[in-house]
Amino acid sequence: MNKKVFIFVLIVIGGLLGMGSSLIISEVVHVTGNAEFCGSCHSMEPMAKTFKLDTHGGNNRHGFVAECADCHLPHDSVLGYMIDKTAHGINDVFVETFTDVDEIDWIARRENRDEFVYSSGCLSCHQGLLDKTEAENPKSLQTHAHYKKQLEKGDPIQCVSCHVTVGHAGQLRTELNKLKPEFSFSDSTESH
């Protein structure tokens, strides 16, 4: 085999291997981003359950269903998405397997929602939202203009900073309370 043929064969084999592995990775990324997969872990059951009650989880007249990764991974770039997905994947498998997930205070962690719900995810679906001039609730035009203004000022807020219960139908706290109640509800004696 001469050198040119060898290089050609090498490129073809390399291309096929690259394409094949890309398809496999793409498939893996696809099947590991939805509520069925994420909710199969014990600690994510309340999140998956309340997601299904939400507009984004299929509770809408169109039957549309988003995926966990649509909101909980950044959508600025494919590279950033893949890096974050890999990092989250490694972290989640480690935490779920080797630590006591029942010890995680999910109710308190809801306060850090800005850190794990990405506006780039929201806006990759709701692409025209910030430029709308009419809305069922006119207040949303004002608040979304505020979002844009803060972004332009370099002092951004996140979609979820306002939409604090989005994605879980406002029921995540209630569902988490079934597992670990915030209050004992005892001693509610009247003081006078």
């Binding site: 004992s184 509800f185 001693d187």
Partner: peptide
């Protein structure tokens, strides 16, 4: 009227 320590933040 109530002591709410155990049922409210």
């Amino acid at each position: 009227c109530h002591t709410t320590d155990n049922w409210m933040n």
